[in-house]
Design a protein around this nucleic acid. Structure first.
Length: 594
RNA sequence: GGAGCUGUAGCUCAAUUGGUUAGAGCACCGCCCUGUCACGGCGGGGGUUGCGGGUUCGAGCCCCGUCAGCUCCGCCA
């Protein structure tokens, strides 16, 4: 074979051995006489020494080595002379005195340095194969493998079967926009790529599999974010004969295993449970970042009879008044206040009321409308001190909470920049968010829509309100949240055909023919003795990003797409030939150049 | 669809109030150098300041437009 050891293997005890190493030239220090080469492979770095007194011919060739040349070296392992050991290197006690050098492949000068961080991401993506040689990417890929392996071992030990489900599926237009795939042999018909294996995993339960999992690729044709790619990976699983608590315990064990095996960190379990209502009330969001305070406080009663009409009328209309203390943010700039106001407005607020506490004074356009009693209540409940900034929301409960939720996060960013708040990535606040409403109002829909998906089972004791007061019904849904990021979610499913049918037709008010054409087979399947079942899906990319402290999931995916959904290395998506289009019965309109 | 930030050498960045020939480190090329590990020394090449237009005696800098990258909102059952 071409090599006897990896570049990370040799130690002092190997001294004297004749070895063969292969790898990339990571750096060279050419002294004119003696030449040092750092030879790198995925396991590490070994110093190679070319000494002209050993072989002038080899040394001559070594002068021509450059970064990223691929070479094979034969030589003798030698302890480094005293005083030249490198304790920063695992192999730093030894070096290899080269007696043979073979250039397996030269390299162009790399377009960016491989030993530095902070390089333009566009360039990294264009040369992703070089980027992957960098330590941080190599580590991420290895950690991802370790995590996947730990997950497979854990779930196997729990009795799960890994089963693949189709990638070419059927369009179900509810929910995320799908990628469509035209069928050549069925003109005018389309497959859709699955946004998740949801329906198949339920059908596997009907099929008696009992415990299924898959590290599944999912596809969603929506706009991208730092934590959203058009194709992404879910740890998807489903179990029969279970309740919610069974999923919590299973996933807590799984997450614990991953953090232990990849990072050596012992996570405390069980994870706390947070009710949806409480999450909104305190943090204004259903995936709260609880590492810092700035929690929302209710002042509805305080302002019920206020002379400040904006608050009073919001309460009179059945709404609430909420506020939080952005502690220490009185140094906020006018621009930042404007920014916060625009943020509030973009989420439907009419404006954003604020109060700065500076030099013992309350500075604000609205403070003149407040009574002494109102000020006193605010001071007490918000623990107002010099240097604070108070921010208010007055609207219907959900809208007021959500607006302040966004404002709260932005304030935390400002405070963090000013060094007054720390969102420590080492602080791992895992928690379950539970008791979500089964249904919600959607301004774009005349009827209520499922807040998660239409297969979620209602909470048993709330079933009585399904027709009379559907907004009161909780779903048996749960989200796993870590530090303000939704890591995953799932539910106990509806396992009876009659109830599923009723939810589609009577609650979601989907036309009967549409129910039949899109979900008929699901409803039918549930009528053939479907066991009670439920499951969950965790975002594997997000999990890896959080595990490794990366801001973007692109840094834990080998070949991600940029913010426009393009692969700038291969140049996809790309145009296709007229012939290809004809074969699949597609005509492209209104696009220049096609 | 909307908002913000960014765009200067291969890379990372600098360039006073609008002012002479746009600089530095690294990388690259040449020469020198036998114990370095961010090797060192001497020398050299390399720029449509993203692109287009405008203001001005004069624009990397100001204005308008446009393109690209990123972030956020909308969207993500």
């Amino acid at each position: 074979m071409k090599r006897s050891h990896s570049c990370g293997a040799l130690r002092g005890a190997d001294a004297g051995k004749e070895v063969i190493l292969a790898g990339w030239v990571s750096g060279r220090r050419d002294h004119g006489g003696v030449i040092f080469i750092d030879l790198r492979d995925r396991e590490g770095l070994t110093q190679i020494v070319f000494n002209p007194s050993l072989s002038s011919e080899i040394s001559e060739l070594a002068h021509t080595l450059r970064s990223e040349f691929v070479v094979r070296i034969v030589g003798k392992v030698s302890p480094r002379p005293e005083g030249t050991k490198n304790s920063a290197l695992a192999t730093g006690d030894v070096e290899v005195l080269a007696s043979q050098l073979e250039i397996l492949n030269p390299s162009e000068t790399p377009p960016f340095p491989l030993d530095e961080e902070g390089v333009n991401e566009d360039l990294r993506l264009r040369y992703r194969y070089l980027d992957l040689r960098r330590e941080s990417m190599a580590k991420a890929l290895r950690a991802r493998h370790q995590a996947a392996l730990a997950i497979r071992r854990y779930l196997d030990a729990q009795g799960f079967l890994e089963i693949e489900t189709p990638i070419l599926f059927k369009s179900t237009p509810e929910g995320a926009r799908e990628y469509l795939v035209p069928s050549r042999i069925n003109p005018g018909r389309f497959y859709a790529l699955p946004q998740s294996p949801q329906q198949f995993k339920q059908l596997l339960m009907v099929g008696g599999v009992e415990k299924y999992f898959q590290i599944a690729r999912c596809f969603r044709d929506e706009d991208l974010r730092a934590d959203r790619q058009p194709e992404f990976t879910q740890i998807d699983l489903e179990m029969s004969f279970i309740e919610r608590e069974d999923i919590y315990a299973l996933i807590e064990g799984l997450v614990k295993t991953v953090w232990k095996e990849v990072k050596g960190i012992d996570l405390p379990t069980p994870f706390p449970r947070v009710k949806y209502r409480e999450a909104l009330d305190l943090y204004g969001v259903d995936k709260p970042d609880r590492r810092y305070g700035l929690t929302l406080v209710d002042f509805t009663e305080t302002f019920r009879t206020s002379t400040f009409k904006v608050f009073q009328s919001a309460v009179a209309a059945g709404g609430v008044v909420k506020a939080f203390n952005a502690k220490g943010l009185a140094m906020v700039t006018t621009g930042q206040i404007e920014d916060l106001t625009n943020l509030a407005k973009s989420h439907g607020a009419k404006g954003l009321a604020w109060i700065k506490v500076e030099k013992g004074e309350w500075k604000s356009p609205i403070v003149k409308f407040f009574s002494e009693a109102e000020k006193k209540t605010l001071t007490e409940k918000l623990k107002v001190e010099e240097g604070d900034l108070l921010l208010f929301g007055a609207d219907q409960w959900l809208a007021a909470c959500e607006v302040l939720g966004f404002v709260r996060i932005r304030c935390a960013e400002y405070l963090e920049k000013a060094g007054k708040l720390k969102r420590d990535p080492a602080h791992l606040d895992f928690h379950w968010v539970v008791d979500f409403p089964l249904l919600r109002k959607d301004p774009e829909h005349p009827n209520m829509v499922a807040s998660h998906h239409p297969f979620t089972a209602p909470v048993e004791e709330d079933l009585q309100w399904l027709e009379s007061e559907p907004e009161k019904v909780r779903g048996q849904h749960y989200d796993l949240v870590l530090n303000g990021v939704e890591l995953g979610g799932g539910s106990i499913r509806i396992h009876k055909g009659e109830l599923q049918d009723k939810v589609f037709r009577e609650i979601l008010k989907i036309p009967a023919d549409m129910v039949t054409s899109r979900f008929g087979y699901m409803i039918e399947a549930l009528k053939f003795g479907a066991p009670p079942h439920g499951g969950i899906a965790l975002g594997f990319d997000r999990l890896m990003a959080l595990l490794l402290g990366q801001e973007s999931i692109r840094d834990v995916i080998a070949f991600p797409k940029n913010a426009r959904g393009q692969d700038v290395m291969s140049g996809s998506p790309a145009e296709v030939t007229a012939r290809q289009l004809k074969e699949i019965h597609i005509q492209v309109e209104g696009v220049s150049g096609s």
